[in-house]
């Protein structure tokens, strides 16, 4: 489905149903170089459990028009405009990785538009390995390869996809390979440059943070530093799970989301 924001087409996934404007809206924001489809294990479930999921492609990603926004702050401003545009706010905001940083900024700077946030693979700082940043800048396939290798827990490198027949590692790599030239670099650079400051302390809405014990990209220690800044937060641990937790442990994530989003 396509919506409009700032006069540009925005591709969204709604779980394969018409957008229900009377249901509780859940805006899901993807991570660096990815798109709406990373939420495909959650959107259709939420759509049939009383919510109106809107998994959005950020500008320049997936099927959305426009250029990528260069900073987390700029991405957050766009997300806030998008919430205004769809007229369904305040929304429940769910972020993954870079999407967490955007969610933090939206929740802290545009609080009337956000009812609560759920963060997966979150940290106050997301420094990016210089080799990865360099490969992304050169649009080399090494960038999707490194991101894929680091983004999954050890179990996901062997098996464990609950969707029969799907292979998680190549799925992640193929998704990243489909990103346009410069998109991955743009996003990684924005993450690398982001300074959270006291953003956690400025957030007043309820916060749920989900952390994977084998997350190498936002390790549990880094997540803990972010969590310490919230005045009120619910922390959920997933053992043996890496950064791509919504695909590595979709059943657990669905349960947590259903509880946290009520």
């Amino acid at each position: 489905m396509d919506l409009q924001c700032r006069s540009l087409d925005v591709k969204i996934a709604t779980g394969g149903v018409a957008l229900d404007r009377d249901a509780r809206p859940v805006l899901l924001i993807h991570g660096a170089g990815m798109d709406r489809t990373v939420w495909n294990q959650q959107t259709r479930y939420l759509a049939h459990h009383g919510f109106a999921p809107i998994a959005v492609d950020l500008p320049g990603h997936g099927g959305s028009d426009g250029a990528c926004h260069e900073t987390i702050g700029s991405m957050a401003e766009w997300v806030n405009d998008f919430i205004d545009e769809i007229g369904m706010g305040p929304v429940r905001l769910v972020g993954h990785s870079m999407g967490c940083l955007i969610a933090l900024e939206v929740a802290s700077s545009f609080s009337p538009n956000v009812e609560r946030i759920v963060l997966m693979g979150a940290a106050a700082a997301m420094p990016v390995h210089p080799d990865l940043l360099g490969a992304a800048q050169r649009n080399e396939i090494l960038a999707p390869q490194l991101m894929t290798a680091w983004a999954h827990g050890s179990r996901a490198h062997i098996a464990g996809n609950p969707t029969p027949g799907l292979w998680m590692r190549s799925s992640c790599q193929a998704l990243l390979e489909r990103a346009g030239d410069g998109v991955i670099f743009n996003d990684l650079y924005a993450c690398n440059a982001y300074d959270a400051g006291d953003v956690a302390a400025r957030i007043e809405c309820p916060v749920t943070v989900i952390v994977g014990s084998e997350d190498k990209m936002t390790p549990p220690k880094a997540t803990a530093q972010l969590v310490a800044g919230f005045s009120e937060v619910e922390l959920k641990h997933l053992d043996g799970i890496g950064h791509m937790m919504m695909l590595e442990a979709p059943n657990d994530i669905r349960k947590i989301l259903l509880e946290a989003l009520q």
Binding site: Q41, R44, H48, P162, P164, L166, S170, S171, A174, R254
Partner: peptide
């Protein structure tokens, strides 16, 4: 809405291992 097995014409746990293995060896998404 959620993954899993319903009936072995559509999917089966033993067959799913083979599917995931071949996808892994070929570098396919599934």
């Amino acid at each position: 809405e959620q993954p899993g097995h319903i009936y072995s014409r559509i999917s089966n746990p033993t067959v799913a291992v083979l599917e995931e293995r071949i996808a892994a060896l070929e570098g396919g998404v599934g």
